[in-house]
Amino acid sequence: MVLTRKTGWYSAEKKIVLTIASAILIASVSVFAILYLMMSNALQEDIRARARVVNAYAESHLNLEGFANINTLADMRRDTYQDTQSMLDNIRQIANVRYLYTAKSNGGGQPIYLVDGLPPDSSDFRSPGDLIEQDIVPMLNRCLSGDPIESDGVLNTEWGAIFLTCMPVHASGGARPVGAVVMEFNADVIHDSKLRAMIYSGALALVIVGCCTVITMLCLRRLATPFYKKLAYTDMLTGIGNRTAFELELKDLEKKLPRSLTIVAYDLNYLKQLNDTYGHAAGDAYLRRMAHLLTREEPVSRGLSFRIGGDEFVTLFEGEEKEALLWGLELFHMAGAQAEVNGQPVTFSYGVASYDPALDKGSLHNTLSRADALMYRFKKAARGES
């Protein structure tokens, strides 16, 4: 049977595609989040480990007198400043720290720079007494109160992305810190990696979602189109072609006329009696039994059968010799009488007509009408009517 009608894009298919696309997108975002967190945590843990080593070394080598004696720009000439600055600069370079400096609170309780580990000619160099930038003041205030500080993740400041640690420095026996050692590690690599990862993973996720959506749509169309065609053109009770399928088949065959084509029309007997006596379930079984015979028994199994009405069936034959077909149909009629449903043999009347260009004039419906007329003549004869 030739079925070429196109099916639409159904809401069920849309839901499947949207569900798959959403699942892929969620999975992509989840994978990105997990990988980014693992990478970020690994980098931050590395920074923390380096910070602890640097803090321990710096604290053990610091001259605590500098926290008391260094307050202004003029104090940079002191040996204490010179020695501390040289030590911090060396540590900063060895440990690859962006900024390393000491700090304390001034008379007004504001955090200020003491010794900066940058070279004095650096553009970012801070002199003793310079106020510390507001971005990190809250953290330094806590540190100068005695709490060791490690920033929770990357801080985005005016001078870039940093990971900050601050270790309070205590004088011997002192309860309150005299100052702090502050380290700012360059976290641009983490920040930039996050941004690149977001862009790349987002683009990759969209590409994957797009490809999977297209593939899913194509697969669904390949699977759904035959399914919907079968659903639209199949008689749900008997499983053979319905009236719509029959009409489409006739239309296709009419394009190929003239050719050897025979139509057999059937009309079941006693269907109403079965329905009235045993109920519609028995009637349905009677119809299914007839359809089963049409698809299994010779010669009708060589043709294409349809249920076109309540108890009406049709078989289309191409290239069959009519005389041989008539003989075979008589045998088929007898085979039906041996099949029973609730004790009722499957009996039917039938009529056979072959396409005749002179009589049917290019219309297979005219051929069907002649087959119907012969079928009703058969039915009347079986009832003993003239």
Rank of each mutant, 00 (worst) to 15 (best):
G109M: 04
D116R: 06
Y113M: 12
L144K: 09
P119I: 05
A103P: 03
V137N: 09
E59H: 11
R78M: 14
C143R: 03
R77G: 07
Y57V: 15
I112H: 01
D121W: 07
L114Y: 02
R48A: 15
D75P: 02
N71E: 06
A56F: 06
G129V: 01
L73G: 11
Q93V: 11
R142I: 11
Q44M: 14
L88R: 00
N69L: 15
Q44V: 12
V137D: 08
A95D: 04
V54R: 06
R126E: 10
C143F: 06
N106A: 01
R48D: 11
D79A: 13
G129A: 02
Q44F: 05
V97D: 05
P120C: 00
V115E: 04
L140E: 10
V54Y: 05
D135R: 03
L62Q: 07
P119R: 07
A51N: 05
I94W: 11
L73A: 14
V53H: 04
S86Y: 12
I70W: 00
D147P: 01
D130K: 02
E133W: 03
Q134W: 04
R126G: 06
N71C: 01
S122Y: 08
P148H: 10
M139A: 12
L100K: 03
D83R: 12
D130Q: 07
D130Y: 01
D124F: 14
Y81E: 11
I112K: 00
I132H: 03
T80L: 11
R98L: 10
A74M: 04
P148N: 11
S127T: 09
G129R: 02
L118I: 01
I132F: 05
Y57F: 14
G107V: 00
N55G: 15
I112V: 15
D83S: 13
T80Q: 08
A51V: 02
N63H: 09
S145K: 12
C143A: 15
N55Y: 05
S86K: 13
G117V: 02
G107K: 00
P138C: 09
